[in-house]
């Protein structure tokens, strides 16, 4: 590990100023992703700016009926909060589906959204990776691409997926990310927070250097959101990242879909809001055939990658089955 200095600012604004003044500095929260990458040599910062004591650990009611989650709230506390469990079950379920008890105790709300991809080549500086270095190629294409993206990809370039379970649930629920930057505070809708790789896969989010996530706001709950859940499919039953996952919220009246939200994990460079599937389903009968047709419409644009070491075409039927069965369970009132 390259040497770095350590700063522990007293307030959030000081953390932002310190980081902005040093292009090679990084924020440190729970450290569960950053420490791993420091050891692997994926990042070599000059300085760590510890924000774990400045970002706050409260979950507060908002005037509009929503909740504000401070960026320092540990993942385990967020999942255990009685209001979150009752009003936003998909959020609690998504967190609990990820990592381990120890990691959830350490991981922060802000750090969770900013965690980097689990692409094995990204984590290995001895292999070429466009996300680490724009001048290099992508080792996953033609390599081990089992965990990689099928939506929002270009003909070549990065096919990494975003690994956060929490982010998928937040995207389904239209959360808002509160950010403090060198020029002041601003709010970013979560759907616009993570990026597709485009021409700069080194950037996972729209944040600029020095931008600190200070909180995540959940809007007031709705009947659909109260009837929401998160389903994750993985290679082992626990303590593994998603092959695919879905955060789904559904309101049905008289057999007809009144409101539906679907966000997918493990399929794209960012949590994927399935807007086409949602639009297709709204006002339609809540039946398996309709569910299947809606997710098929969403996956129409999917472009799986083929690889001698394992491609990811299996994700198309896997996403379909996952979404259909989750919608069916929610329609029956038992997710």
């Amino acid at each position: 590990m390259k040497p770095f200095t350590y700063a522990r600012p007293a307030v959030a604004s000081e953390a932002v100023t310190t980081l902005a003044a040093d292009p090679d500095a990084r924020f440190l929260a729970g450290g569960t992703n950053l420490l791993d990458h420091l050891k692997l040599g994926v990042v070599e910062p000059s300085q760590l700016v510890d924000v774990s004591r400045v970002t706050g650990t409260a979950i507060e009611e908002l005037a509009d009926g929503g909740l504000r989650i401070d960026a320092g709230v540990p993942n385990s506390d967020l999942a255990a909060d009685a209001r979150v469990r009752e009003r936003y079950p998909a959020v609690a379920a998504a967190i609990l589906a990820g990592a381990s008890g120890q990691l959830r105790n350490m991981a922060s709300t802000g750090g969770n959204l900013l965690q980097r991809t689990r692409c094995a080549y990204f984590a290995d500086p001895t292999t070429p990776c466009t996300k680490r270095d724009l001048s290099q190629g992508c080792s996953a294409r033609g390599g081990w691409a089992r965990y990689h993206a099928v939506l929002g990809t270009a003909a070549d370039g990065c096919i990494a997926t975003h690994p956060s379970d929490l982010a998928v649930a937040l995207v389904a629920l239209d959360a808002q990310v509160q950010v403090l930057g060198p020029d002041g505070a601003r709010t970013i809708p979560i759907g616009e927070f993570h990026r597709l790789p485009g021409d700069d896969p080194t950037r996972d989010t729209v944040l600029a250097h020095g931008d600190l996530v200070t909180a995540v706001d959940l809007p007031a709950t709705t009947p659909a959101v109260r009837n929401s859940t998160y389903r994750k499919v993985r290679d082992r039953a626990s303590y593994a990242f998603a092959l695919v996952s879905a955060a789904v919220a559904l309101e049905v009246a008289d057999g007809t879909v009144v409101d539906v939200r679907i966000a997918l994990g493990g399929v794209a460079h960012k949590p994927w809001r399935a807007t086409t599937a949602e639009a297709t389903l709204r006002g339609r009968p809540a039946t398996d055939d309709e569910f299947r047709a809606a997710i098929a419409a969403e996956l129409d644009a999917a472009a799986p990658v083929d690889s001698p070491l394992g491609g990811n075409a299996f994700k198309i039927p896997l996403v379909t089955g996952t979404v259909v069965s989750t919608l069916r369970a929610l329609a029956g009132g038992a997710a």
Partner: peptide, 27 residues
């Protein structure tokens, strides 16, 4: 493993179980 994947380094930090291999001492 030293990478958060095995749990052998688990300790109770201020009463909560955490992985000491992914925790910076100075923090």
């Amino acid at each position: 493993c030293d990478h958060g994947q095995c749990g052998a380094c688990t300790v109770l930090l201020d009463g909560r179980r955490v992985l000491s291999c992914l925790t910076l001492a100075v923090a």
